[in-house]
Amino acid sequence: MSVERSENLESLIGSALSAIRNLETQIAILGEDVGRLTAEFSQERAKVQQEREEKDIFYSLETGTPYVVAAPDTIELRAMEKDLIDSALRASTLERRLFDFVSVLSVSRRQFESDGELPDIDSASDIALRTARVQAQEDERRRFAREIHDGPAQAFANAIIGLEFVERAIKMGDNDKPIPALDEIERIKGSLREGLTEIRRFIFDLRPTMLQDRGLIATIEHYIATYRSILPLNVELHTVDHVPRLTHDQELTAFRVIQESLHNSTKYARASQVAVNIAIRDDSSITVSIRDDGRGFEPDQVSAHTMGGSGIKGMCERAELVGGAVTVKSSPGQGTCINLVLPLVHS
């Protein structure tokens, strides 16, 4: 009887492994399907964008404007372009989440195969934490990719459209009619300058080397001064005279939280004023708060695929990895306050 039960157990273990493998395969296939859909959204968006740009150029030349303006009959195309961008973002997020889940299943199955046991709660938490670290890196890369698309890439795209406009204007011009090319060339130069400024900002954002050399406060002061010079946002910084030395990861976390908060205040909240406060609490922790006067939102209704949602999630995960915590207070029309608490490291 005991032999029969042992054989039955082995059979159930085999069935469990088979079920996990099948689930891995099914979810991976779903992830690939979503990935193809993401690519289709992006390709369709590129076609719509090209059609919209052609209409804008043609309309501008027909009406004799000195630069490219939006054609009245492109409203639907612009709305379609925005919907395709949003759909591509949602699909991309879903694809990433599906493959993250496949990774967790795969690690669990391999442990089951080698040790004969599935991960317990602590081991599962460790797997989830490792996955979260990788996911946070990927989220940040995707955020920068989107910023580059909306910033310098858009500036360069506008410059290309402007050059096409100038080329056609020159070809259509004659000796009796002034060619509106010089005005457009000036606009193109301005667009390229904006793109160059954005690229320089991205380089600093990607690798804030000042943290190691000059510490957290000096780096934040420099970053906020740079932010003020390139964006129409009034940013105030209030800090203590001396901040005890944090670990490198803690300083990087504080910098990234401020960076992400300012980004959200500018792009999503449409704030005009932001206050950044750094303080020491009870000699045991440092607090960093970022408060804006933007339009606010309902924190409970923000998900990872909504605009700004992945950034908030990334801030919380970063803080947890260095023993800290992030809280978000906001409501529609009342602005937003991001609060970071980090434990001080005592020697």
Rank of each mutant, 00 (worst) to 15 (best):
K177G: 02
P178F: 11
P178H: 11
I179Y: 05
P180A: 04
A181P: 01
L182A: 08
L182D: 03
D183V: 14
I185Q: 04
E186T: 07
E186C: 10
R187P: 06
R187D: 05
R187L: 14
R187Y: 11
K189F: 12
S191P: 09
S191M: 14
S191C: 08
L192I: 14
L192D: 02
R193M: 13
E194Y: 07
E194N: 09
G195D: 01
T197H: 10
T197D: 08
T197S: 07
I199F: 09
R200H: 12
R200Q: 12
R201F: 07
R201Q: 12
F202P: 02
I203A: 07
F204T: 10
D205W: 15
T209K: 15
T209N: 13
M210G: 06
D213W: 01
G215L: 10
I217T: 10
A218T: 09
A218C: 09
A218G: 09
H222N: 14
Y223D: 05
Y223I: 09
Y223V: 02
I224Y: 05
I224M: 11
A225I: 06
A225T: 05
T226E: 09
R228F: 00
S229V: 08
P232C: 03
L233E: 02
N234P: 06
V235D: 05
H238Q: 08
V240R: 07
D241R: 11
D241W: 05
V243P: 13
P244W: 12
R245L: 03
L246N: 03
T247E: 12
T247Q: 15
H248Q: 08
D249W: 03
E251Y: 08
T253V: 14
F255D: 02
F255I: 07
R256L: 15
V257K: 06
I258W: 02
Q259G: 15
L262T: 00
H263T: 13
N264K: 13
A269H: 13
R270K: 13
R270F: 12
R270E: 06
A271D: 00
S272Q: 03
S272R: 08
A275M: 04
A275T: 05
V276M: 01
V276A: 01
A279Q: 12
A279H: 08
I280D: 00
